[in-house]
Design a protein around this nucleic acid. Structure first.
Lengths: 232, 232
DNA sequence: GTCTATAAAGTGATAGAC
DNA sequence: GTCTATCACTTTATAGAC
């Protein structure tokens, strides 16, 4: 997997760290280059010197975090296709390949797990607008692959329905990633911040059930994939 | 239900129309008062004259669209509680009460269905940050009510799990509302823009299945609520 | 590489003429 | 109510000294 660190000069690293932290916390649109240079204790011109433009910095941050995740997603999806050699892959395993790469890549980053997830969620939310064409193409390709595999997993669901349900899954995923703290709702005591793995396991079960809606008969058959992987 | 129109002066109406349209299309953060006055063919000072500040305009737009939806949601939820008089309400009906008020309120607005949904999605996405305290409180109360009813609908699911799944549902809903055009993916031919009702029906089925995950036994019993309402 | 100074344009808001 | 002119500030970006 690609290395997430780009050492180079010390100041450049500090700028990148500050940028990632601020982008994760407040979103790409609202953070100015002055916010970043100030947080990194650098001078105002530093960002333009090291990254050319503000957009260049954003493109770098996006590529640095999105690319490894998407590569790992593709690897896992291809592994699944080999493992099931043409047969339907259980939905749980496909969704797992979609979200589990997060835990692998988060370890390689300098960010805390919480900030890493927020940053990636915000990056996912930018897809379809304002992202470099190359990255958009990468994402589009990945989306097609996943949709095609999911179509096989859910032969009884119309292709159109699969696309819509995938759309819902992506929305739920982005929301889960960006809003880490929100579920401090009613009967929710100490359950503030479970581990990323626990949240992903919850998400996989939820999303898979949603994708599989209406297939009561097949459920008992197709559902039991690597259940032990997420059940704990 | 509250009337969505605030006639007053002609210019003020035009400003409000332009603001809603631009906010819906590009989001609240990126639209400037100059964008709005220019689109409304008014002069730069018009917004400050009619609405005090930019924030005042946003608060007005938010309240104008969010309040009727939330009121209708609460009404429907209470109707359900009466209808099932203390017993578990089928999940489908709860999710229906959450999203179906959209179609009622959209008819009263001047916006197209597409823009109305995008605007409301962006408003929902602002919850938990940067919204007037009174509106936040309104939303918090509504969220508690829905979570409590859903807890009864899903007695076999832990309260903590219900909160998380509701979180996923909200994320999927927001994404569906804001991104109306996206699902132009692979095997997706003429299925570009189905009606709002069709999309909501899809969403209700998906979200309900996700909420109900792991309850294969009860499904056959609890699931069949007003199936005819969304199946078409 | 780092800094200051500054350019050029955009922001929300307001005073005051009409 | 509407408009122009303008204030005070922020934005990204750059030129040029050190």
């Amino acid at each position: 997997m690609r290395d997430l660190t780009i050492p180079q000069s010390e100041a450049k690293r500090r700028l990148l760290d500050s940028a990632e932290l601020l982008f994760a916390e407040h979103g790409f649109e609202t953070v100015s280059v002055r916010d970043i240079t100030q947080h990194a204790k650098a001078n105002v011109a530093a960002i333009n010197y090291h990254f050319g433009t503000r957009e260049g910095l954003i493109a770098l941050v996006v590529a640095r975090y999105l690319t490894p995740v998407n590569e790992e997603r593709l690897t896992r999806l291809e592994t699944l296709e080999r493992k099931w050699s043409g047969k339907a892959v259980p939905v749980e395993e496909v969704i797992d390949a979609l979200v589990r790469p997060l835990v692998g890549v988060v370890r390689k980053s300098e960010l805390s797990e919480r900030l890493f997830c927020m940053l990636l969620g915000r990056i996912f939310a930018m897809q379809g607008a304002s992202l470099p064409a190359a990255i958009e193409e990468q994402a589009r390709h990945l989306s097609e692959r996943f949709t095609r595999v999911l179509g096989k997993s859910l032969v009884a669901v119309s292709p159109e329905e699969v696309v819509w349900r995938s759309h819902f899954v992506v929305g739920a995923m982005i929301h889960m990633l960006v809003h880490q703290d929100l579920p401090q709702r009613p009967g929710n005591g100490a359950a503030g911040a479970p581990t990323l793995e626990a949240r992903l396991a919850r998400f996989i079960r939820f999303a898979s059930a949603g994708m599989r809606e209406g297939l009561e008969q097949q459920e008992a058959v197709v559902k039991k994939g690597p259940q032990a992987m997420f059940d704990f």
